[in-house]
Design a protein around this nucleic acid. Sequence first.
DNA 1: AGTATCGGCGATTATTCTTCGGCAGAAAGG
DNA 2: CCTTTCTGCCGAAGAATAATCGCCGATACT
Lengths: 175, 175
Amino acid sequence: MAKNTDDLRQGRRQQPVIDAFDRRILAALAADSSQSYARLGEAVGLSAPAVHERVRRLRQSGAIKGVHAALDGAALGKPLLAFVHVEAAGWGKSERLMQVLQFPEVEEMHSVAGDASVLFKVRTASPQALEAFLAQIHAVPGVTGTRSYIALSTYLERPVQAGVTDSWPHMPLPE
Amino acid sequence: MAKNTDDLRQGRRQQPVIDAFDRRILAALAADSSQSYARLGEAVGLSAPAVHERVRRLRQSGAIKGVHAALDGAALGKPLLAFVHVEAAGWGKSERLMQVLQFPEVEEMHSVAGDASVLFKVRTASPQALEAFLAQIHAVPGVTGTRSYIALSTYLERPVQAGVTDSWPHMPLPE
DNA sequence: AGTATCGGCGATTATTCTTCGGCAGAAAGG
DNA sequence: CCTTTCTGCCGAAGAATAATCGCCGATACT
């Protein structure tokens, strides 16, 4: 009998093992998710059904959260990318603050440790639209200030990568 | 004769018009790019071949830059998300700085206007790995300092949205 | 050793993608 | 006002891919 039967019986789902094959599949899918299973299998050294089964498992386990088209902000009329740091008195996450997530301009929202409480990534059509977004933020009770960082050039913007650097180059810190 | 023959002859590509159909297709693809053309067509009110043709055009025009699988950082062993602001003397973009983009932990790099020169989004396995990344940054000539914002909770993280808010709710700025 | 479980492979079926010809509506020109 | 041209959509057919099934070998536990 399998040794994890107890876990299954109690509804626990054991952490699925992600081996080297899975890692290569995930890396390939993060780079381009429109390629066929046959090509994927050829790239990683498995047959198409095997890749299919692994992808199904990775999807179900949550390692793959979805498949999305990467759109060009400028082509869609939103050339302005900005990161907005919000300082709030008390605790940042409020019901009112979550409502701004409905705007399609907002792409990310995190609560952060540092000299800010909440961090937004927003992509707007114009400086005026950014100003309108900031007005929305300032209208939230408890917000004491914002600091905006406007992207001048984007040198890299890619999804979560499958790889993990396990041996960082040894390099002495500057004294 | 078409009126943009001159443009085509000179290699110029006129800005393709993105109509309401395209916008809806793009919105659907940004949400889930794994659905069939038939379903997409049903959702937006077109036939499958029509959607196919539009997607082909949107791809070629660059509005759709690619299709990527969204991976779960925690499931892959990278639970720590951080935004790193880099202050640099002189001009930030250096050949040396671009080399850190090779690490799979780095997901974004922008040059920004504000009290920082360059902004990184990095996802690491541990605080030690983040420290190692920071060591790499500090080893770059000209870097005078970094400021890190560690994400405690991620409330939203999604790709570029197709929608644009054209009428922001009118709301007076706090006096 | 025996046995059960797991994962991969080859082959088959179902679904989807991709292309083609035809047609209707809009725009430019006579 | 009519003709011509162009563009884009649709239905149908052929090609490619996705998804499933049974069989097999490897591994681990009894």
